[in-house]
């Protein structure tokens, strides 16, 4: 597996995937939105308000999914010192944070008409807010050091310790009395969402997941290119006196390895 964790391999593999994945994401979300907003039945007691679910649930799922991904990348960067794992973790944080914000905002907009309140401090809502703070803390921490290596060490440690919050978010509705209702999809006795509402939900969850990978690939490519430019600057490639022909030999991996050795 380790030989795939090279920037050049990442760039080579993701280049052909990216356009297909982008198109797939657009189709999934477009069809998903059509089914969510138009071609699905209303709920027997919530009426049209139930359509908030088709954004809220996928966003909540992605908020947790991205955090688990970030924590795993953090562990890999701590144990094996893979720069690519660190780049992936850094690239995932703002995406996951945005999904968490979408989850909290749509949840608030849903809570007001149904529960009668924008916000309560119950276990589910509070643990989800802590998840957002963990993302924000991670982003602040990794950029708080002059030496990026130290920043990612501290950030990875925070991401790993914060991973304890993930099962708390998931099981908060089972362990304690909450205003939020128990799980509707991932539960022991099967989903409690009517099959006619499961299709738009599944499409949106898939669409959001593909969207995450598209943005992740774009962000990692951006970071790799930035690092390469920085490495080329340091090597003097942009000096007027240097010979451009020899500088071209500089591969992505050379810069990558130089940084890893620091």
């Amino acid at each position: 597996m380790h030989r795939f964790a090279k920037p050049s391999v990442f760039l080579k593999f993701t280049a052909p995937i990216l356009p297909w994945l982008s198109v797939l994401t657009a189709i999934l979300i477009a069809v998903g939105l059509y089914f969510s907003l138009i071609a699905s039945p209303v709920d027997y007691q919530q009426s049209h308000t139930v359509r908030i679910m088709y954004i809220h649930v996928p966003a909540a799922w992605m908020g947790l999914f991205c955090y688990v991904g970030m924590a795993i990348c953090g562990a890999m960067s701590l144990i094996w010192k893979h720069p690519l794992a660190d780049i992936c973790a850094r690239a995932t944080a703002p995406i996951g944070a945005m999904f968490t914000v979408v989850c909290l905002v749509t949840g608030s907009l849903w809570g007001e008409p149904m529960w009668g309140t924008w916000w309560v401090w119950d276990a589910r809502l509070t643990s989800m807010l802590i998840l957002l703070f963990l993302y924000l803390g991670y982003m602040a921490l990794v950029n708080a050091f002059d030496d990026p290596e130290r920043g990612s060490k501290a950030g990875s440690a925070l991401a790993l310790v914060g991973a304890v919050n993930v099962p708390i978010v998931k099981f908060s509705v089972d362990w304690w009395n909450t205003l939020h209702q128990p799980a509707s999809i991932v539960r022991m006795d099967g989903p409690t969402v009517d099959p006619s509402m499961q299709l738009p939900l599944a499409l949106m969850i898939l669409g959001f997941t593909c969207y995450y990978f598209v943005v992740l690939i774009l962000r990692v490519r951006l970071e790799l290119n930035e690092r390469r430019i920085r490495a080329l600057h340091l090597s003097g490639m942009f000096d007027e006196r240097s010979n451009p022909a020899t500088a071209k030999e500089q591969s992505y991996d050379a810069g990558h390895n130089a940084e890893a050795k620091q």
């Binding site: 709920d43 027997y44 919530q46 149904m114 529960w115 009668g116 309560v120 209702q181 128990p182 509707s184």
Partner: peptide
């Protein structure tokens, strides 16, 4: 001083509920 509604985790169309 405040009453909030707590709905359950079941979502279904009105016909199914009927």
């Amino acid at each position: 001083s405040e009453v909030l509604a707590k709905h359950d985790e079941n979502y279904m169309p009105p016909e199914v509920a009927e």
